[in-house]
Amino acid sequence: MVSEDAPRLERLGDVWVGRFTAMASPCEVLVDTDRRRDAADLVRAARAEARRIERKFSRYRDDSVVHAIHAGRGAPFEPDAETARLLGYAAACFELSGGLFDVTSGVLRRAWTFDGAEAAPDDARIAEALAHVGWPRVEWDGRTFMLPEGMELDFGGLGKEYAVDSAAALLAERSPVACLVNFGGDLVANAARRDGAPWIVGVDDPDRTGEGALYRIELQHGGLATSGDARRYVTWRGKRLGHILDPRTGWPVADAPRSVTVLSTTCIEAGTLATLAILQGRGARAFLEAQGVTGWVVDA
């Protein structure tokens, strides 16, 4: 029996690999050390950080900050410093994307079921959902946050990447040992390995998840994140529509790539750029080029 307190550790070459589940994703922490106890300490710290962030920002838990905001039904809310920073980042994303990246757009998803079936979107439902979407409708002055009743906040597009960066920074503060923190495919290397060799990261083919890497990326340090999900789509009039919704129209973004992977200094930056690229639809590749970003685009 594996006790809750002991993360599963496996020796692979000259690193220890710790595995656990958090944020509904398989998580992996690679620790570049020979000392199992050091590795276990770091894996446990990373897991604690992932679960702390999950607990705090999950829409599905009744003890989360998000739940408290929703339960306030439009009442003014004074978030703690970390939540305030995340709201600030969400505001910046909205501005920089011209309204495409919107943490209030989660409501829209209820109008769609991305199970691959032929969907007949209900225009009335989409219109109703759109009435509860739109970052400009919230009030946020950096201290007090007000979310109109009926609207919802969803950090789903940011939380995992933020947790990766936060955990990696936490581990770097604890120990000089280099770690690769990977939460469900979004990852960051917090330092170069002790032998100077890069971390090797494989990116899956969205059509053949788990069957072999589409790319092998050498990472000294920095973040890597992927946006897009091959398994979540609907078909409409014979066209395959991905699950990335345009909060301005309520419809999936036309001609969106299947997935975009971006390499950047932090995981959250990589993840946001990948999402922004997908939201550009056919313009994903041009967007990455214009931003001077190293990325990989898999077309639909």
């Binding site: 995340l86 600030g88 980042y89 910046a92 994303c93 200094t265 959250i268 930056e269 946001t272 001077g292």
Partner: peptide, 12 residues
Amino acid sequence: RGALRAAASVLL
């Protein structure tokens, strides 16, 4: 990207 990096560094 530049603006995002600034926002990310505030977040982190």
